[in-house]
């Protein structure tokens, strides 16, 4: 699949922002006054910025509000609705903490739960697609939610909790890659089932329907840059999860160390999300003789 920068930024940044909201909402950290302002601005800024980035992926961003209507069936719609509801429910808790020194823990906890659900629905936008076997797997929501919780915990300064969460994230990433590499081949879809010609023999594309590029190939048969996948996986795993975990567990906590861990995690997750898209093969590639 085409690794669109807008979608990579969206999933990484809003995941991190909603992850921070989970920790702030459930009261693991109740920052008041100016400190509170910084934390809440970071959470709203990351989550909102990510959502804004996602609208750049749309052909008609001016109609984005229409995406809130089909929450009964569509995970993308649910994600939009949940993020707005989360923002709204969280707002009194955030404003109370920052301006009145009066946090509202009940609304906070409700908002925290909604923030976690928002991240889950983001992951389900991808995990629901049976046409992309690598995504259609439980490791997709696992990676998204652990990344949000670990990254958010790190931003919230929850060193003791974030360390083990990073370790879990590393395991989830490794599992997502390991199992994902086998999903397409293990699945039932082949060029023979795609064309129904398997009853005659082995199927091979002789002539594509067009000599040039098209939307389908650009969007769903993206094979550029996969040769660096193994190296990028190592970078993503190390920077995104392993090194932050080791830093948090082994070294004394501090703002400088925290900032370093955040930047490493962010870089690692951007690489991991690039791979998430670039390595995902769509079954339509079977009609084009490539994946």
């Amino acid at each position: 699949m085409h690794p669109a920068p807008s979608l990579i930024l969206f999933t990484v940044l809003s995941g991190l922002g909603f992850g921070l909201m989970v920790w702030l909402g459930f009261g693991a950290l109740v920052p008041l006054g100016w400190v509170g302002f910084v934390f809440w601005a970071l959470a709203y800024g990351l989550a909102g910025g990510g959502l804004l980035a996602a609208t750049f992926h749309l052909g008609h961003p001016e109609r984005a509000w229409r995406a809130l209507s089909q929450w009964r069936t569509s995970w993308l719609s649910r994600e939009g609705v949940l993020s707005i509801v989360t923002f709204a429910v969280m707002a009194p808790h955030a404003a109370g903490s920052v301006f009145l020194d009066r946090p509202l823990p009940v609304l906070g906890a409700l908002g925290g739960g909604l923030a976690l659900l928002t991240v889950f629905s983001t992951a389900m936008i991808y995990a629901q697609l049976r046409s992309v076997p690598r995504w259609h797997h439980w490791t997709t929501p696992a990676v998204f939610m652990l990344a949000a919780l670990a990254g958010g915990g790190l931003l919230a300064g929850q060193v003791a909790a974030a360390g083990p969460l990073f370790a879990l994230l590393a395991v989830a990433l490794a599992l997502h890659w390991h199992m994902g590499d086998r999903r397409f081949a293990a699945g039932p879809d082949t060029a023979e089932s795609a064309t129904g010609l398997g009853r005659i023999g082995k199927v091979r594309l002789l002539a594509p329907p067009h000599t040039g590029r098209n939307y389908l190939l650009r969007e769903m048969v993206h094979v550029v840059g996969r040769k660096h996948a193994a190296r990028l996986r190592l970078i993503a795993l190390a920077a995104g999860a392993v090194v932050p975990a080791v830093l948090l567990v082994a070294l004394p906590a501090g703002h400088l160390l925290g900032a370093l861990a955040v930047l490493l995690h962010l870089a690692g997750m951007l690489a991991a999300r690039w791979l998430f898209f670039a390595e995902a093969e769509h079954v339509v590639g079977l009609y084009y003789g490539r994946r």
């Binding site: 052909g59 109609r63 984005a64 995406a67 697609l129 992309v132 969007e219 769903m220």
Partner: peptide
């Protein structure tokens, strides 16, 4: 008229039956 051009339906289709229009973005 109400398509936002997100492209998710084209991703969901296993057959490649949907294409985003290069000019209209729907």
């Amino acid at each position: 008229d109400i398509c936002i051009g997100c492209g998710l339906c084209a991703w969901a289709c296993p057959y490649g039956a949907r294409e985003m229009d290069g000019a209209e973005r729907v």
